[in-house]
């Protein structure tokens, strides 16, 4: 007993929680890792064994194609790893055992970091796979843009994690958290973005949308960086407006600017995590 040290600011509980969380989520991690490697391998290698399936012209285009799937992997991983991070403590009542042992802020930070390490590892493996395949097909060196994209992807996954953690902090069930966050991230943002573009066209950039911010992952690979970032595609004949005689204009924001994208991702990370931690602290078992 005498040997024990009591420190209010000790980060050891956070580290213990991180390590425990890594062990706890091991199976989920292996599953996602297998899926990620499989997808990376299928897209980057198996598909290329088919002679008539043409390799992208350049290394960055190859990365761009490969990274179309990263947002899906990231999204599913974030939802499945983080949806139970808070609400399961209440739903499954595991909190009754663990809350008296560790400060809630330290617990959430530990759990968040633990899961984040795993999700980031999955992303890293995917990028690594893509990187070495890019190196293999395009004889290196690996374009620095892949590293920028990797940085953005990490920021994006952290932002998604904070977003899902925030939902987990007030939702009752893990499954409902998974479903609702998946719906919002997969469809909700896209639908709202389309409506916003229909109403405001190029006047209002959907910077509120995490999905839009995520488009910077592939956007940053473009040479040159898209300018203008808002484009319009017109279908049909002359005359304007809808209908048989008119044309239909479809507008799209391609990607946020690098500075704004990074800033907003960081804002999302901080705001959602702080909100989540605050709600977690206030929530009673």
């Amino acid at each position: 007993m005498e040997k024990r040290t009591y420190s209010l600011t000790a980060i050891k509980p956070v580290l213990y929680t991180v390590v425990f969380e890594l062990k706890k989520q091991k199976k989920k991690f292996y599953f996602f890792l297998a899926i990620t490697i499989l997808i990376g391998f299928l897209l980057g290698y198996i598909l290329q064994l088919i002679p008539s399936s043409l390799l992208a012209d350049t290394q960055t285009e190859f990365f761009n194609t490969g990274l179309q799937f990263i947002s899906f992997i990231t999204l599913f991983a974030a939802c499945l790893f983080f949806s139970g991070i808070i609400c399961s403590e209440f739903n499954k009542k595991t909190g009754a055992i663990v809350f008296p042992k560790i400060n809630k802020y330290k617990l959430i930070v530990g759990k968040y970091l633990g899961n984040l390490i795993l999700v980031m590892a999955i992303i890293t493996v995917y990028y690594f796979l893509l990187g070495i395949l890019g190196f293999y097909y395009y004889a290196g060196p690996i374009s620095p843009k892949l590293f920028y994209s990797y940085g953005i992807a990490l920021l994006y996954v952290i932002a998604l994690s904070s977003f899902v953690t925030f939902f987990s902090s007030f939702m009752r069930s893990v499954n409902i958290t998974i479903i609702s966050t998946l719906i919002i991230l997969l469809m909700g943002f896209s639908i709202v973005d389309q409506i916003v573009v229909l109403i405001f066209a190029g006047d209002f950039e959907p910077l509120y949308s995490l999905s839009y911010l995520g488009s910077l992952i592939t956007g940053i690979l473009n040479t040159p960086f898209p300018d203008p970032r808002y484009v319009e595609f017109t279908f049909g004949g002359e005359g304007g407006g809808f209908g048989p005689g008119g044309h239909f204009t479809f507008g799209q924001w391609i990607t946020p600017s690098i500075g704004m994208g990074i800033t907003l991702l960081v804002v999302n990370i901080v705001v959602f995590f702080i909100l989540a931690a605050f709600l977690f602290k206030r929530r009673q078992l």
Partner: peptide, 29 residues
């Protein structure tokens, strides 16, 4: 203080992993 609250519910880990984590959390040597 040590607590046993209500019917306990644990994370699905081994007894050893759980107890080690709890002991660590509570500063046991």
């Amino acid at each position: 203080i040590g607590f046993l609250i209500d019917i306990p519910s644990f994370y699905n880990m081994t007894a050893y992993q759980l107890l080690r984590y709890f002991a660590n959390l509570q500063n046991y040597p």
